[in-house]
Simulated scan of single mutants.
Amino acid sequence: MRFNPKARIDTGQVENRSGGGGGFGGGLGGSGMRIPIPSGGGGRVGLGTVVVVIIYIVIQAIGGNSPLSPLTDGSDGTSSTVSDHCQTGEDANRDQACAIDLLTNSIQNYWAQTLPDQQGTQYVDIKTVKFRGSTSSGCGRAVSAMGPFYCPNDQRVYIDLDFMDDMLTGQLGAEGGPFALGYVLAHEYGHHIEDQLGILGQMRTQQGPRSDSVKAELMADCLGGMWAKDAQKTTDALGQMIISDLTPDDISRAINAAQSVGDDRIQKESGGKVNPEQWTHGSAAQREHWFNTGLKEGSLEACDTFAPGAL
Rank of each mutant, 00 (worst) to 15 (best):
residue 119 Q to P: 00
residue 155 Q to W: 05
residue 188 E to M: 09
residue 156 R to F: 04
residue 134 S to A: 15
residue 154 D to G: 02
residue 178 P to H: 06
residue 135 T to W: 14
residue 84 D to Q: 14
residue 129 V to A: 10
residue 142 A to Y: 13
residue 118 Q to C: 09
residue 149 F to I: 11
residue 184 V to A: 14
residue 194 E to T: 05
residue 131 F to Q: 13
residue 86 C to V: 05
residue 88 T to L: 10
residue 131 F to P: 01
residue 172 L to E: 01
residue 106 S to K: 00
residue 198 G to H: 08
residue 159 I to M: 15
residue 186 A to F: 02
residue 137 S to F: 03
residue 120 G to Q: 12
residue 186 A to R: 01
residue 181 L to Q: 06
residue 92 A to T: 07
residue 178 P to L: 08
residue 161 L to M: 15
residue 137 S to G: 14
residue 142 A to S: 15
residue 155 Q to D: 11
residue 151 C to L: 02
residue 156 R to E: 03
residue 182 G to L: 12
residue 114 T to K: 15
residue 99 A to Q: 01
residue 122 Q to P: 04
residue 128 T to Q: 11
residue 149 F to W: 13
residue 125 D to Q: 14
residue 132 R to A: 00
residue 88 T to H: 07
residue 191 H to G: 08
residue 155 Q to F: 09
residue 124 V to C: 03
residue 193 I to M: 09
residue 155 Q to V: 13
residue 161 L to P: 00
residue 158 Y to W: 09
residue 127 K to N: 15
residue 85 H to G: 11
residue 136 S to C: 11
residue 164 M to W: 08
residue 127 K to P: 04
residue 141 R to T: 14
residue 131 F to W: 09
residue 112 A to H: 12
residue 186 A to S: 13
residue 204 R to P: 07
residue 148 P to M: 02
residue 90 E to Y: 15
residue 158 Y to N: 04
residue 117 D to K: 15
residue 125 D to M: 13
residue 146 M to H: 04
residue 114 T to P: 00
residue 86 C to N: 01
residue 96 Q to I: 11
residue 159 I to G: 00
residue 175 E to W: 05
residue 175 E to P: 03
residue 89 G to T: 04
residue 174 A to S: 13
residue 179 F to H: 07
residue 180 A to M: 12
residue 177 G to V: 09
residue 195 D to G: 10
residue 164 M to T: 11
residue 180 A to H: 02
residue 190 G to E: 10
residue 146 M to A: 08
residue 171 Q to D: 07
residue 172 L to T: 01
residue 160 D to N: 13
residue 152 P to Y: 01
residue 116 P to T: 12
residue 141 R to F: 14
residue 98 C to N: 05
residue 111 W to D: 00
residue 177 G to W: 02
residue 149 F to Y: 15
residue 126 I to W: 10
residue 175 E to K: 06
residue 105 N to T: 09
residue 202 Q to Y: 00
residue 100 I to Y: 11
residue 93 N to M: 05
residue 146 M to C: 04
residue 194 E to C: 07
residue 173 G to E: 02
residue 84 D to Y: 12
residue 132 R to F: 06
residue 90 E to P: 02
residue 175 E to Y: 08
residue 181 L to A: 07
residue 178 P to C: 05
residue 104 T to F: 03
residue 108 Q to Y: 08
residue 115 L to R: 06
residue 190 G to I: 07
residue 106 S to V: 05
residue 150 Y to S: 12
residue 135 T to E: 14
residue 125 D to F: 11
residue 202 Q to P: 00
residue 96 Q to F: 11
residue 187 H to M: 13
residue 169 T to Y: 01
residue 135 T to N: 14
residue 175 E to I: 11
residue 182 G to F: 07
residue 171 Q to R: 13
residue 173 G to A: 12
